[in-house]
């Protein structure tokens, strides 16, 4: 800097030589301090807005907007091109914007009996699986709540542990159990109960087993959470007043755990309806479920508008249970916040 090209006169150079250290010593830290204070003030004033807007924008762009794109493409026409669907809007010759909406894809779904049957079958399979999860999960959750303290934590950990291992591999485990040469058939043949293997894998039965097995922890945890809040003195009061244990259960315990039952059932029912891995690996070609059809339309047939229409139709079916789940979630959290305050 002292040998600067534009510093031509000695005075100029002297000035610079005196000024520069001064600048360094006095002004720059001042500027830096000023800047950090400005940044600090900005953050102090706007950090709430920033904290809200970053995840908000992320979810808006990567979660909400995609649904509108799916809706748009479900109304397009399938083309052999890249991308393989027609544009919805095009500029006509007279310069006016013309919008083409096609409901053909939805009409196709409705008219093809196979799709309607697949929808109904998915709802049936996931509904029955949810009922089984509840029947199996309720006593387990109650047993955990009633267990003594150290055992309780270990049991709870054992319920959560499968979450941390691979879902795919846990479904795969049942392929080995249910196969024609699998564990169950081997045991039955060894015991002399059957002579030839029974067909268990690639059946609707296998899909039920897979869904109940994979989603059982999702049922147990909300049930446990609602039971943990139970006031056991109510049960004691009921039995002191002479109520039969079964009556106490039906009139006291069960009604108080309804929020847990609803949350757990929705957590099983909604994702199970659109399940792909379980019907694919355990149901093979013999079980029709809508998630598998959607994956096939997208992956094998490359018919994206139909895949999008299938997705929208599935969403329409599930929107009511999802709203219910949302309603319960927000109710729980506002009650939780009220307790914390």
């Amino acid at each position: 800097m002292s040998a600067g090209r534009n510093a031509d006169s000695p005075q100029h150079r002297a000035l610079l030589r005196n000024l520069l250290p001064g600048l360094m010593r006095g002004l720059l830290p001042g500027v830096a301090r000023d800047l950090t204070r400005k940044i600090d003030n900005f953050l102090q004033a706007h950090w709430r807005g920033l904290t809200i807007s970053v995840p908000f924008l992320w979810l808006l762009v990567f979660f909400l907007v995609p649904f509108f794109i799916v809706l748009k493409i479900s109304l397009a026409e399938s083309l052999i091109a890249s991308p393989p669907f027609s544009p919805l809007t095009e500029w006509a010759e007279d310069g006016a914007l013309r919008v083409r909406l096609l409901f053909d894809n939805f009409a196709y779904l409705w008219e093809d009996k196979l799709y309607v049957e697949t929808y109904l079958n998915s709802l049936k399979i996931s509904g029955i699986s949810t009922a089984f999860c509840l029947l199996i999960g309720y006593p387990i959750a109650y047993g955990i709540v009633r267990a003594a303290s150290p055992a309780k934590h270990i049991l709870l950990l054992l319920i959560i542990l499968p979450f941390w291992t691979s879902f795919l591999l846990r479904v795969y485990a049942w392929m080995g159990i249910l196969a024609d040469q699998g564990t169950i058939n081997n045991i039955l043949i060894w015991a002399g109960l059957i002579e030839r293997p029974v067909r268990l894998l690639y059946s609707e039965f296998a899909v039920y087993v897979g869904i109940v097995y994979s989603y059982l922890p999702f049922m147990i945890l909300p049930l446990y959470a609602s039971m943990e809040k139970l006031d056991m003195t109510l049960n004691e009061a009921a039995s002191d007043l002479g109520a039969h244990p079964a009556v106490t259960f039906l009139t006291v315990t069960l009604p108080l755990t309804v929020p847990g039952i609803i949350a757990g059932s929705l957590l099983v029912f909604i994702p199970a309806t659109g399940e792909f891995v379980i019907p694919d690996l355990l149901g093979g070609g013999n079980v029709l479920m809508i998630g598998k059809v959607l994956y096939g339309e997208f992956n094998a047939n490359r018919d994206w508008p139909v895949a999008a229409a299938v997705a929208i139709a599935l969403l329409v079916v599930l929107v009511a249970p999802m709203m219910l789940y949302q309603h319960f979630q927000s109710g729980e959290s506002s009650r939780g916040a009220g307790k914390g305050a």
């Binding site: 979810l59 909400l64 995609p66 799916v70 957590l267 909604i270 994702p271 659109g274 999008a308 959290s333």
Partner: peptide, 29 residues
């Protein structure tokens, strides 16, 4: 905001997957 936060917890994976794929294709265009 709360709706967008709780929906991914229960959304069937095939729907999330397809919608994100179509978003990426649209963004690319």
């Amino acid at each position: 905001f709360t709706g967008m936060l709780s929906a991914p917890l229960v959304m069937p994976e095939v729907i999330t997957g397809l919608s994100l794929l179509l978003l990426f294709i649209t963004l690319n265009e």
